[in-house]
Design a protein around this nucleic acid. Sequence first.
DNA 1: AGTGTATGCTTGATATACTTAGCATGCGTC
DNA 2: GACGCATGCTAAGTATATCAAGCATACACT
Lengths: 131, 131
Amino acid sequence: MSGSTTQGSSGKLTLGQYLASIRTDRKLTLRQVEEATNKEVSNAYLSQIENDKIQQPSPNVLHALADIYVIDYGQLMEMAGYITQAKARSQGQRHGRVATFANHTLTPAEESELMDYLKFIRSRKKTSDKS
Amino acid sequence: MSGSTTQGSSGKLTLGQYLASIRTDRKLTLRQVEEATNKEVSNAYLSQIENDKIQQPSPNVLHALADIYVIDYGQLMEMAGYITQAKARSQGQRHGRVATFANHTLTPAEESELMDYLKFIRSRKKTSDKS
DNA sequence: AGTGTATGCTTGATATACTTAGCATGCGTC
DNA sequence: GACGCATGCTAAGTATATCAAGCATACACT
């Protein structure tokens, strides 16, 4: 029951949620992705990944997806629980997580709405210290 | 370079041969390595890897070995047949308007909240569509 | 109605990484 | 010789990623 696909506003996105959000954002179907990856990732399997039925997809699968979505392979690797070489890069914070949004195609209207909402979120939290 | 251990006069070393040569060089036993990796890699399994019975050990196993041997993780990954970030080609085009968000450093929580909100926005608009 | 088609998802089967137990040989000491 | 015991390895089992096929619903069109 319940269990909408969103996992609430508390935690991070899972790998599956992340991949699903990107695909739907780009308005691609499971089978289109399967085609785009040259059958490297079947639509059935992608469905399982997006629903977190697969605990740790292989690097090759992740690479194929990163390839067609044009997103960062290393990020997918980390999300999947793999240890990557760039594990000690806690300094270059300028990018990194924001990549999530950078990889979504937002309309100007949406972007503006989100900017407002971000302001709202931050104003709510302002009472407590920043971390 | 390299050449100090038993390398076939033929071509490159396989992953297993490479790992075995390092271990014997260091005069370690399979069970010592198993201990050193905190049982992350069992001696039985390491034996299979060294004899190329395992086609593609998982990145986590490779990382554990790279760790205790103090060798390059990425090299092991490539030897095992994984594609690494080194292969990353052109980053491709960036989505211009998203730059606004890219310049904001979002916390994971904020990012997640915004993702939910974006879904909400789009679900509202769903009734009207045109192409 | 009905027929087709697209979409997401599930189900059963297979491949293979990985584990646990044990084998075989060698090397030492009695 | 027999008893330990360390070393590399193997055999059988479990877990899980991945595939091929199909199901269910929704949407379109006649």
